[in-house]
């Protein structure tokens, strides 16, 4: 490869999607979507169930063909240069794809072999990945008898066994415990630091906060594409009050009733575990009214505070906005 060619290669946009559309019969799963992801970026691909996230990834990987538009990975056309794309990417699919009848170690060896690692490289990678996945002592356990969370860790390891430059992770942390979830993200960040480009889907909005940029897809259409901080400014209809009360379930019912009867202009009331987030046009203006409403009904209000919206607030707000629009 000439030096010049090498330079242009390394500046190629790792992920490029142009007017991508995919129909299944009369149904449009992905509808005219365009975006790109830069080298070393961690890009969150978010949206409600059935929005078209996995379908987009499958087109990027050349596993299904677009109805129109195109997808490029590392400069290769996913539909026509599929083999070249596969050589450059790591993919952790939403569905479990490891062999249940192989041991954990055999699965890593298998995926390494598929990607043409030498036996020396393999030996090193197997021990690295077993370490990383926290499966030390379980190397020889049949994959089928690993717990769900462990399988997920092993699947991540197999997806990156060959040090790919572009990685697609489709709900990597589904079914893993809160501590491993954080370790997954430390790993994702480590990869990004090493120049790897990561496209990741997740339904955990606290994780999505960690993405440098987020694409939000709903019913096949790209509805927002921006940094997390920018999305919070542009996509949020109102301000968030975080409320801690004695009986959160009851408090939510009271607030929902007040919302229905337009007593208070509440845009959204959502339970976050034992806390309530209430979205109002102006937090300072409605703080007292909400507090009064709750105390009237014998709810003890431990605290009520105007907070910056979380990405989950933004997600709920924009999904509801779309439901309202239809």
């Amino acid at each position: 490869m000439s030096a010049e060619l090498f330079v242009t290669q390394s500046q190629v946009t790792p992920i490029l999607v142009q007017n991508l559309t995919r129909r299944f019969g009369a149904f449009t799963a992905v509808d005219d979507v365009s975006f790109s992801v830069q080298a070393g970026e961690v890009f969150g691909w978010l949206g409600p169930n059935g929005a078209g996230k996995t379908t987009t990834i499958r087109m990027l990987l050349g596993l299904i063909k677009p109805s129109s538009g195109s997808a490029f990975v590392s400069g290769f056309n996913s539909a026509t240069q599929t083999k070249l794309v596969h050589a450059h990417v790591g993919y952790m699919s939403q569905q479990f794809t490891l062999y249940n009848d192989l041991t954990a170690m055999q699965n890593i060896r298998f995926y390494g072999g598929v990607h043409g690692l030498s036996s020396d490289e393999l030996r090193q990678r197997i021990s690295e990945i077993i370490q990383m996945a926290g499966l030390v002592g379980r190397e020889n356990t049949l994959t089928g008898s690993l717990s769900g969370g462990w399988k997920q860790r092993l699947a991540l390891g197999c997806a990156i066994v060959h040090h790919p430059k572009v990685v697609f992770l489709d709900e990597p942390t589904a079914g893993v415990d809160p501590i491993s979830r954080r370790q997954f993200w430390e790993l994702i960040y480590q990869m990004a630091k090493d120049g790897v480009t990561v496209l990741v889907t997740t339904h955990y909005m606290d994780e999505a906060e960690l993405c440098q940029r987020v694409g939000f897809i709903s019913a096949g259409r790209l509805v927002a594409l921006d940094s997390v901080s920018q999305l919070k400014l542009t996509q949020m209809r109102g301000q968030v009050l975080e409320i801690n009360v004695s009986d959160p379930e009851k408090a939510v019912r009271i607030l929902k009733a007040a919302q229905q009867s337009h007593q208070v202009p509440l845009d959204e009331v959502a339970l976050y575990g034992a806390q309530i987030h209430a979205v109002v046009p102006d937090a300072q203006e409605y703080n007292d009214a909400i507090q009064r409403l709750l105390t009237q009904d014998n709810i003890r209000v431990n605290s009520i505070e105007w907070i910056a919206p979380t990405l989950e607030d933004v997600f709920i707000s924009s999904v509801k906005a779309r439901v309202d629009a239809n």
Binding site: G47, P48, N49, Q94, G148, E171, A174, G175, H203, M205, A270, L271, E312, F315, I316, V319, K320
Partner: peptide, 16 residues
Amino acid sequence: DEPTLGVDPVSRREFW
């Protein structure tokens, strides 16, 4: 057993 694995944040609340 992990009923909301892979379920989006809005649907998760509806399920609960």
